[in-house]
Amino acid sequence: MFSRSYKLTGLGPLLSRSFTTTRSSFSNIGKSAIPISESVQCFTEEIPYEFCKTFRKGKSIYSLNRNIVVKGPKGSLKMAVPSFVSISQDNNYINVKVEDPEDRIQRSMWGTSRATIQNHVIGTTEGHIAIVKFVGTGFRAVIEDGEDGKKYVALRVGFPYIPKVPVPDGITVSCPNPTRLLVEGLDKQQVKLFAARIREFKKPEPYKGKGIYVDDEKITLKEKKIK
């Protein structure tokens, strides 16, 4: 039996405390410093008002009026943030701060901004990679040159036609063997998004395990239904 304490009011007894005593915990990702090498630069720049994007949370509207720029040996990346997000550099570390850590919206943007900046630091120094694997008889991919000068990934995955996916700018795709694709780029989000687009054409099925897998993806096989 749980121990309960009641409070008498004009409407009758009400439960004054919840059954659980566990306190809500918050993520501390935003407080962690981001280590950088000497070849990486990180700074902010203002975005002109007419080019600012906005987003709404409840009744409040926030403007993304500041860019956080990360420059490294492989290139540079930008991230638009609201004015309450700021950065400071101390030796070889970057600290991300917000004006009011107790505010729910600012706290959520704090951790998100810090994680994205860290991904940009890794991307501009080492790059991000996604491995796309083709499992199934005859399943394979071929990189082709289009008439428009762009690269295309032709997928042979059991369809009566051959889907061709254009490779977006900033992404490099290589094919070490017919059943593997290496997707590389600076922006982690764009790299994983392109790999996910390829996976959409033939998701792994749970009976034979055939399909397109991304990175270390695994599925649990089911037994065939026997009538």
Rank of each mutant, 00 (worst) to 15 (best):
F2S: 14
S5E: 14
S5Q: 11
L8K: 10
T9L: 09
T9M: 02
G12V: 03
P13E: 08
L14C: 00
L14E: 13
L15S: 09
S16K: 12
S16A: 12
R17G: 01
R17Q: 12
R17Y: 02
T20S: 15
R23A: 11
S24A: 09
S27L: 12
S27W: 04
N28Y: 08
S32F: 08
A33M: 14
I34Y: 05
I34T: 06
P35L: 05
S37G: 15
S37N: 12
S37K: 10
F43K: 12
P48A: 11
Y49P: 00
F51L: 14
C52T: 11
K53T: 07
S60K: 14
Y62A: 00
V69M: 11
V70R: 05
K71T: 13
P73T: 05
G75M: 04
S76K: 13
L77K: 07
L77N: 04
K78I: 13
K78T: 14
M79H: 14
V81C: 03
F84H: 06
I87C: 03
S88C: 03
S88D: 06
Q89K: 15
N91C: 01
N91M: 02
N92H: 11
Y93S: 10
V98I: 14
E99W: 00
D100Q: 09
D100K: 12
P101R: 06
E102W: 03
E102G: 00
E102T: 11
Q106A: 05
M109R: 03
M109E: 11
M109Y: 14
W110V: 05
G111W: 01
Q118V: 02
N119I: 00
T124E: 07
H128F: 10
I129A: 08
G138N: 03
F139E: 02
A141S: 12
A141Q: 02
V142R: 10
V142F: 04
I143P: 02
E144V: 14
E144A: 10
E144M: 12
D145F: 05
G146Y: 08
E147F: 06
E147M: 08
V153D: 03
V153L: 06
L155K: 07
V157W: 03
G158E: 06
G158W: 05
G158T: 05
F159N: 09
P160N: 10
Y161L: 07
Y161E: 09
I162S: 01
I162R: 12
P163M: 07
K164P: 02
V167A: 06
G170V: 02
I171L: 08
T172C: 01
T172N: 09
T172H: 01
V173C: 03
S174W: 00
S174N: 02
P176N: 00
L182N: 07
G185T: 02
G185L: 03
D187K: 10
Q189T: 13
Q190E: 14
K192S: 14
F194E: 06
A195Q: 07
R197K: 14
R199Q: 15
F201W: 15
F201M: 10
K202S: 13
E205N: 11
E205M: 07
P206C: 04
Y207F: 15
G209M: 04
I212C: 08
I212Q: 06
Y213S: 05
Y213C: 05
Y213E: 04
D215N: 15
D216R: 13
D216P: 00
K224E: 10
